[in-house]
Design a protein around this nucleic acid. Sequence first.
DNA 1: TTTTATGCAAAGTCTTTGCACTCAC
DNA 2: GTGAGTGCAAAGACTTTGCATAAAA
Lengths: 142, 142
Amino acid sequence: MKIKRQTVQKIKIMEYMKSTKSHPTAEAVHAEVSKELPMISLSTVYRNLNTMVEDEELLKLDFGNEAHYDADTSFHHHAYCLSCREIFDVFDDNITDFFNENVEIDNFNIEQTMIIFYGNCKNCKNVNDKANCNKVNYKYNK
Amino acid sequence: MKIKRQTVQKIKIMEYMKSTKSHPTAEAVHAEVSKELPMISLSTVYRNLNTMVEDEELLKLDFGNEAHYDADTSFHHHAYCLSCREIFDVFDDNITDFFNENVEIDNFNIEQTMIIFYGNCKNCKNVNDKANCNKVNYKYNK
DNA sequence: TTTTATGCAAAGTCTTTGCACTCAC
DNA sequence: GTGAGTGCAAAGACTTTGCATAAAA
């Protein structure tokens, strides 16, 4: 088996991921880590993020056509603001308990449950920026 | 405001979407509709799927790096098999009731809740095909 | 020294867009 | 006839990969 090496790039990427709650894209991680490590390449960022996801150190979240990464791998969920497109963490024991106690699917073995709330955050609540909302291509059922 | 026209392409795409529960990608829709309408282009498929999502006739589901479409816009959820990568519909009144009655987020106005269960379906349950699972880049918390 | 990880550039995949043409209304 | 929708080819956005080089162990 391949022995993994510690590199400055890897360390700085994980350091940044652990320090933020912003659910950055690979691009954003690269921009941030570049401040300290100007020579780091975008492909190195991608390669490391992928490895960390495989090693279960990060969570990968697909929003639209790009992936966001989250260093918090505990059971929690996400709220996505359709106006400003920010991703917020949602920690809720009721949901955790409900899913642990009540949810099972016939003929399907659940490994992981991912819940995403689409809507508008506090700051955008009153904006009702429909034009902007449409851009993300998520529509409402209500 | 733009007046929308009915075209054979549009009709056939919607017909197919309403006839399937397979949550096809744009590519798959194109392949299927091409059987009846050999000249239809992939961009026409994309354009129509996008319009239908905007018009709330279809749901768009992001899995990994590609979008899947679902003509069932009622409140339901999805189970994604990490082995065979099939998407299954999940209808569950318990979940519906729970979310309607118990779930709200501080400072966030929920428009839509999307729940995805990752795991293994009946057919793949005993396979435990880890190598394959890793490819999709979703990892387990349990 | 050995072999993994990096940086760069090129290639891949999925999706969108510009433009001339077609066809629904 | 008018202009929305189409097909095609090109371009875009995001991500991966091949290869020579750098640097962990």
